[in-house]
């Protein structure tokens, strides 16, 4: 049986605290460690902040739908908006050795989730699917980065 929950929040940053509370509760239901809960909560916050900034360009009157699914072996989060299409090929975090504001959010999302995919089938807006493996084989972010570099 799939355990899932859906919330819709206005695209106003004041609702991010509500989102974080729900995210943390869903993470705890899935049995994550306290550290994992913190990582996932921050990552979902960052993903929805990006929707507010980039997809809706600061328009606070729009909606963001967030679906959480606890399935065997993974924790999934699907974030949908009806804003400007993201260009996944242009989404890249800054080099962490550079000291400058911005460009950190993508790293924080990819640290918490093993899979970060935009659904190409969605015609209008964006559907971002985030998957974190939960059965003891969640990739370590640093190891994954090293593996990507080596391949």
């Amino acid at each position: 049986m799939k355990n899932s929950a859906v919330i819709t929040i206005p695209s106003h940053p004041q609702y991010l605290s509500v989102l974080r509370a729900v995210t943390a509760q869903m993470c705890m239901l899935s049995g994550m460690s306290e550290r994992a809960v913190d990582e996932v909560k921050l990552a979902v916050d960052e993903a929805c902040s990006n929707v507010m900034k980039h997809a809706y360009r600061g328009d606070t009157g729009r909606k963001i739908m967030i679906q959480f699914r606890i399935v065997p072996d993974s924790f999934e989060v699907i974030i949908e908006d009806n804003g400007i299409k993201a260009r996944p090929e242009r989404i890249e975090g800054r080099d962490l050795d550079q000291v400058r504001p911005g460009g950190l959010g993508v790293h924080l999302i990819k640290r918490a989730f093993d899979t970060f995919t935009f659904d190409k089938r969605k015609k209008k807006g964006n559907r971002l699917k985030l998957i974190r493996h939960t059965k003891g084989y969640h990739d370590n972010y640093t190891d994954r980065k090293i593996r990507q570099k080596d391949s």
Binding site: D45, S49, V99, P101
Partner: peptide, 16 residues
């Protein structure tokens, strides 16, 4: 109790 990348960016700007 919590900081996200926008908070971090604020301090980077302050430091600069």
């Amino acid at each position: 109790s919590y900081i996200d990348s926008s908070g971090i960016a604020t301090f980077v700007e302050g430091l600069k």
